[in-house]
Amino acid sequence: MTVVFKKTPVLRDVPLHYCPGCGHGIVHRMVSEVIEELGIQDKCAGVAPVGCAVFAYNYFEVDMYEAAHGRAPAVATGFKRVHPDHYIFTYQGDGDLASIGTAEIVHAAHRGEKITTIFINNAIYGMTGGQMAPTTLVGQKTTTSPLGRDKDHCGEPIRMAEMLATINGSAFIARCALNSTPNLIKTKAAIKKAFETQIAGKGFSMVEILSPCPTNWGKSPAEAMDWIADAMIPYYPLGTFKEV
């Protein structure tokens, strides 16, 4: 029998703390597989955010940092400037990247920082219990938009991929989703492309990944995956927005 699918050693043998059906675990596996496939485990480091993935430093079998909320791109910059021949990724949620850390991600892109950002967009704050995020959709109910996000009150969600694609320092910007097998395959391919962009030293790379949050969306894991297609993808179109 030949092995078709087996856990990569880059993903540590530690049970994940994520909720059943959460997208984080899927992306953790993809990033770990890409690191293994590109053969860069011994020259790679990662930066975990503050958010549901705050424990990611326990899950990747590489050197890891835990960054303050929103500051992962700055931490990664510090690492990369000290070890320009090593590789580093930041793993961030939408609160971390698109809210408190907006300046850091925008300026990392502007500097053309040769780092890779894995950006999980689940349209909500997960760890703190379901508050509205900058990516929360108009009309979407959360614990801090109980009547549904009102765009006249607090605007419409941020489209980070499109925004960062306008920056010259960005070399590869794509948005993917986890809701179907084809999209899962494309997501991993995009993550691999992002790391290859970094390895080639072309500049800043980011993959925005639409990811389910069953617990805080109040949906079953399957319903959450469907909601990505029904509600998120129409507002957050998938595709490659920048490729150098």
């Binding site: 480091a45 930066v47 940092y65 960054a67 303050a68 500051r71 700055a74 931490v75 990664a76 910059t77 510090g78 690492f79 990369k80 400037r81 000290v82 070890h83 850091e104």
Partner: peptide, 10 residues
């Protein structure tokens, strides 16, 4: 935070 990254890198 860049100092954190660089200092953490040795």
């Amino acid at each position: 935070n860049m100092v954190y990254g660089a200092g953490g890198a040795g």
